[in-house]
Nucleic acid binder design. Structure first.
Length: 112
DNA sequence: GCACTGACTCCCA
DNA sequence: ATGGGAGCCAGTG
């Protein structure tokens, strides 16, 4: 099965998230031109091949938490990577107000 | 083609 | 603050 072009756009957006910052599924969806498609972002990230080096760990939910069962290996590793990049977790929650990436709507990313 | 699920989010009680 | 319900779109059986 072929990969939908939508995913490539989403991956491109995620890859543009600078180190030390995070973004939410909803925001990534909006920045990608698919407002309201937060779930699609999750699906896209799950389908993202490792070869692309997509920093999926920088994408968290609107609550500032990782979208994995807390205590799980995935959640733990994601949090560990983010902390290693300088993102601070307080009680398992990221201060989105301080770390959320402000996407640039005028980016050339939009018209690809 | 229908129905259910999912790495989501918003709204209201 | 917390939980339930609806809306959302693609993937999967």
């Amino acid at each position: 099965m072929s990969i939908n072009p939508r995913y490539k756009k989403i991956w491109a957006v995620v890859k543009s998230i600078p180190k030390g910052s995070v973004s939410t599924y909803g925001d990534v969806a909006r920045f990608s031109g698919y407002p309201g498609c937060a779930r699609m972002v999750g699906t896209a990230l799950r389908a993202a091949p490792d070869e692309l080096n997509v920093p999926w760990h920088r994408v968290i939910n609107s609550q500032g938490k990782v979208s994995f069962p807390s205590g799980g290996e995935k959640a733990t590793s994601q949090q560990d990577i983010l902390e290693h990049e300088g993102v601070v977790f307080l009680s398992g929650v990221v201060n989105l107000n301080a770390y959320a990436w402000q996407g640039n709507l005028d980016s050339e990313l939009w018209r690809m």
